[in-house]
């Protein structure tokens, strides 16, 4: 197997924070933003990098692309040393920072693309083809001549994505690309990424708070908490690890006191004086059918539905369990 596209070993990054104490004295505290992180991403993979705000995601990305120097440990991206070989690496990687723009805000989108083509030294013919491909797939045709500052957020993010992908990088790192986008814009962005990966075999590293992004786009997730790797593996595995529960929602024929004493079941809540009740159960210990039987023994059930483990909930549990 060839060298992984991202490989870190014991990667650690500390910041010194100065906090005021008293009038003149300042306390120095060392904050470990990334703590002994060892990860590996193979070429062609699509990996979700998730964690709460301040968990160390952006710091990791900055070390991957050579913006920050690690305090300890090693990092190699695309087989290169991001610090010493930053400029070569820039040809291999495309990055979208959700909060910062690489477009020229007062210029039409098209002009930003042509400047970026020159920056990455893409031959004019090749640049035209690639631009046409991206414009077509991201449906940007009708605002190519609009200055960036006049674009809506959704339009701008599509343009940012195209800007990061113009030089057909092997590795694409997206830092919260769907933040603040409406459902339709998110959908369009995800569809594009799926297609782009199918076409070019691009490796994707994605940080996001949106579990829809992860579910649609990622084969594997890395969960980071307080700078440490809390979990790596599949999404389903993640749910199992933390013992996420399924929820049975029952609509009853009559108002019923809360069903709090059923075996292996946690009563989550009731609506309409107990007409609808939400019951959580662990799929490893009991089944939906058994829970339903228990309920039916007490009161007639009019309707029911089963809710699958919510990814948000899974991640919340991980964060909480680490605390």
């Amino acid at each position: 197997m060839s060298e992984p596209i991202i490989a870190t070993d014991g990667l650690t990054r500390e910041f010194v924070r100065r906090t005021r104490s008293g009038k003149l004295l300042r306390d120095k505290t060392v904050v470990r933003a990334v703590d002994d992180l060892t990860i590996s991403v193979e070429a062609g993979e699509s990996v979700g990098y998730i964690g709460a705000n301040g968990a160390g995601k952006s710091t990791t990305i900055k070390m991957l692309v050579g913006i920050l120097v690690p305090t300890r440990g090693t990092v190699r991206t695309c087989g290169l040393d991001p610090l010493a070989q930053r400029r070569r690496l820039a040809h291999e990687v495309g990055v979208v920072f959700g909060q910062r723009s690489q477009l020229w805000w007062d210029l039409p989108v098209r002009e930003s693309f042509s400047i970026l083509a020159a920056i990455h030294r893409i031959a004019p013919g090749r640049a035209r083809e690639r631009e046409a491909e991206l414009v077509g797939r991201l449906e940007m045709g009708d605002y190519l001549d609009t200055p960036v500052r006049q674009l809506s957020l959704g339009q701008r993010m599509r343009a940012e994505l195209a800007a990061a992908l113009l030089h057909t990088p092997r590795l694409v790192i997206l830092d919260e690309p769907t933040i603040g986008l409406d459902v339709l814009s998110k959908q369009r962005l995800r569809d594009f990424l799926i297609e782009e990966r199918r076409e070019h075999g691009t490796t994707l590293l994605l940080t996001t708070h949106d579990m829809g992004d992860i579910e649609r786009l990622c084969d594997r997730v890395l969960v980071v908490d307080h700078g440490r790797l809390a979990y790596q593996g599949s999404l389903d595995g993640l749910a199992r690890t933390v013992g996420a529960q399924r929820v049975l929602v029952v609509d009853l024929v009559a108002a019923t006191p809360d069903l709090t004493d059923l075996p292996d079941v946690v009563h989550l809540g009731s609506e309409g004086h107990g007409l609808r009740q939400r019951l959580a159960f662990d799929a490893e210990r009991t089944t939906a059918a058994r829970v339903l039987t228990e309920v039916s023994n007490r009161v007639a059930v009019r309707d029911l539905s089963v809710e699958e483990p919510d990814i948000e909930d899974v991640v919340r549990r991980i964060y909480q369990s680490q605390r």
């Binding site: 692309v65 050579g66 400029r87 820039a90 495309g94 990055v95 920072f97 910062r100 990455h120």
Partner: peptide, 14 residues
Amino acid sequence: RAGTLDVFYLRPQP
């Protein structure tokens, strides 16, 4: 503040 410098790091020029 604008993060422009981080963007410069992503490009293959000094």
